[in-house]
């Protein structure tokens, strides 16, 4: 028989409001059921209203941990990426979301934490510690992070430069980074709209990238950000040649 391993849930001494904002937060059966319902709803909606099309799903690893990275045009982006993964991964799936947008108001924070399983990144006051905690969690348990390294949704349709935060998560680890290109989300649900439009969306998934040999310091982080950005642009180019936006 194994030794008794009575390890309480992380952050269980925190009041619910603070628990939702905690990076170490752990969910149980209730959250799992809610997420099962949410991701099923998202998949159906994307199929019915946006005729979603996935390419390159064979590049997805069979098991966590890995990081999904994509261009960022819309709040639909995380939903599209999450829907490309098997439903059984819903409890290991963590969209990294802007703290000031998704975790400042209590009701929205509860929704982000319970339904989306999002973890906060405080864009103005994150500091190094937030990324260190995220990296620690990524390496200590099965996790799938969804990350938009541009840091914000594009307002002009052009993909911005990737920030080095991604490198802080992946440098010197065996965790693969999966570059993805999302097309149509900005038209379907641009930042200035309240409700999405019924427009076609597609997602192209590139080959996994590994950064085990890259040093976990600023130069390494910048190199990773640049390399992944180039890879996303390459996936985008490949997709746009195959299927131009007006077709």
């Amino acid at each position: 028989m194994e030794d008794w391993d009575l390890k309480p849930a992380a952050g269980m001494d925190l009041p619910p409001v603070q628990q939702h904002r905690s990076i170490a937060r752990e969910g149980g059966l209730l959250e799992s059921v809610v997420r099962g319902g949410w991701w099923s709803f998202v998949r159906c909606s994307l199929k019915v209203f946006h005729r979603i099309d996935y390419q390159g799903r064979e590049h997805l690893p069979q098991k966590p941990s890995f990081i999904m990275v994509a261009n960022h045009e819309s709040h639909l982006d995380a939903m599209v990426i999450g829907s490309s993964l098997p439903l059984r991964m819903r409890n290991e799936l963590f969209p990294l979301a802007a703290g000031d947008l998704f975790f400042e108001r209590n009701a929205i924070a509860a929704f982000s934490a319970i339904t989306l399983n999002a973890l906060p990144i405080w864009r103005r006051k994150c500091g190094k510690q937030g990324m260190i905690d995220l990296r620690k969690r990524l390496l200590s348990e099965p996790c799938v992070y969804i990350l938009f390294p541009e840091g914000t949704r594009t307002r002009n349709g052009e993909m911005g430069a990737f920030r080095p935060g991604l490198g802080m998560l992946a440098a010197g680890t065996d965790v693969p980074v999966i570059p993805c290109f999302l097309q149509g989300t900005g038209v379907a649900f641009p930042p200035d709209r309240v409700m999405p439009r019924w427009k076609k969306i597609s997602m192209t998934i590139g080959e996994p990238m590994y950064f085990g040999n890259v040093e976990n310091r600023r130069e390494g982080w910048n190199a990773i950000a640049a390399e992944v950005e180039a890879s996303v642009r390459q996936v985008a180019q490949h997709r746009l040649i195959q299927c131009p936006p007006n077709k």
Binding site: L6, P8, A9, M12, E26, G28, L29
Partner: peptide, 11 residues
């Protein structure tokens, strides 16, 4: 729920 979270049974 609280018992399960305290004892780790929720996993």
């Amino acid at each position: 729920r609280e018992f399960a979270r305290a004892t780790g049974l929720f996993r």
